[in-house]
């Protein structure tokens, strides 16, 4: 069991990094390191007009919470926040935010990395590409390197 607070949200709207860091660390004097990772939508050299993210409501939140709980136990994190957007997202916009806190930096870095590696491979989200030529492109394929990134944590 973990006493460290976990904040998980799956939402259509944007998020603000400073607001979320403040919410995670407010009123605490024991945190020495905060790492934030944010993932943004790329335009793929100008060919992409938007990504459309589909998710499995309920399971998406539950799976991300399971991943954060595991990261807290494994790395001794003091807090973790993970926010993932769904719906249509334009190039340059935020997709995902992960924040981790720990007494010293290494655990926060590793914890954020761990959460992202598992989030990409086991949180139920799927990306569809929309092209600049107005076409609804295909579904993004899962990448082998994402599986490899996840599997390195099992050593």
């Amino acid at each position: 069991m973990t006493a460290a607070p976990v904040t998980v949200r799956v939402q259509r709207g944007d998020f603000d990094l400073a607001t979320e860091v403040q919410a995670l660390s407010a009123g605490r004097h024991d945190i020495g390191a905060v790492v934030t990772f944010s993932g943004l939508c790329r335009d793929e050299a100008g060919t992409l007009s938007a990504l459309e993210l589909e998710h499995y409501p309920g399971m998406a939140e539950a799976e991300i919470t399971r991943i954060c709980d595991e990261a807290i136990n494994r790395f001794g994190l003091q807090a973790a926040t993970a926010i993932h957007r769904y719906g249509k997202i334009a190039p340059g916009e935020n997709i995902v935010l992960v924040i981790t806190a720990s007494p010293h930096r290494q655990a926060a870095f590793d914890g954020a990395n761990f959460i992202m590696d598992f989030l990409k491979t086991s949180a139920p989200f799927w990306k569809k590409e929309h092209g600049n030529d107005g076409t609804a492109g295909g579904w993004v394929s899962a990448k082998d390197e994402d599986d490899s990134a996840r599997d390195r944590w099992s050593d």
Partner: peptide, 10 residues
């Protein structure tokens, strides 16, 4: 029971 392709979020 849910069926879906490999996930591509993040």
């Amino acid at each position: 029971i849910a069926l879906f392709p490999p996930m591509t979020g993040g």
